[in-house]
Amino acid sequence: MDISSSVFVVQPSSGVPLYRQLIDQVRGMIATGRIKPGDVLPSVRQLGAELEVNFMTISKAWGKLEAEGLVEHVRGRGMVVTAARKASVQAEQTRQLRVLVDQAVVRGLQCGMSRSELLGIFKTSIEEHLQ
C-alpha cells in the first residue's frame, strides 16, 4: 500500500528538527502496525510539497530510516518498509525511550514523589494503553 502524505504532520517551530519528527512518526506507525512491511513511503517531492517544507528535509529523514534498516529503496517503487526490526534499531529505540522516561522520573522526583508513587504512575499508564 502507498502511504498517503496526509498522515504526516510536522511542526516547523518545534524544537525537534523536522527530519526527526518524520522519523519518529514513521517509527511510531510501524510500531503500532499502522504501516506494514511492503508499504511505500510518499516520495520526497510529494511529501515536501504537501507539508511545504524543504525537500532536503524529507530526503534526509528517508535516508536515515534507510540507514537504520527500517525502509529500503526499491527501484521503481520508492522507499519500502522492510520486514524485520533489527537488533540495532531496537537498541536505539530503547536508548531514546530511556531519555523520555528519565525526564518523567526527574519531574516526579522534583515534585517530591516517592518510588512507589512513580512506579504506580508507570503501571497505570501501561495498563491503560495495553487495554
Binding site: S13, S14, G15, V16, V99, Q103, V106, R107, L109, Q110
Partner: peptide, 12 residues
C-alpha cells in the same frame, strides 16, 4: 543534579 532537557525552536 537532576536534569530535564528541553528542545528549543529557532526563535528561542
Amino acid at each position: 543534579a537532576d536534569v530535564v532537557i528541553e528542545d528549543l525552536n529557532l526563535e528561542e
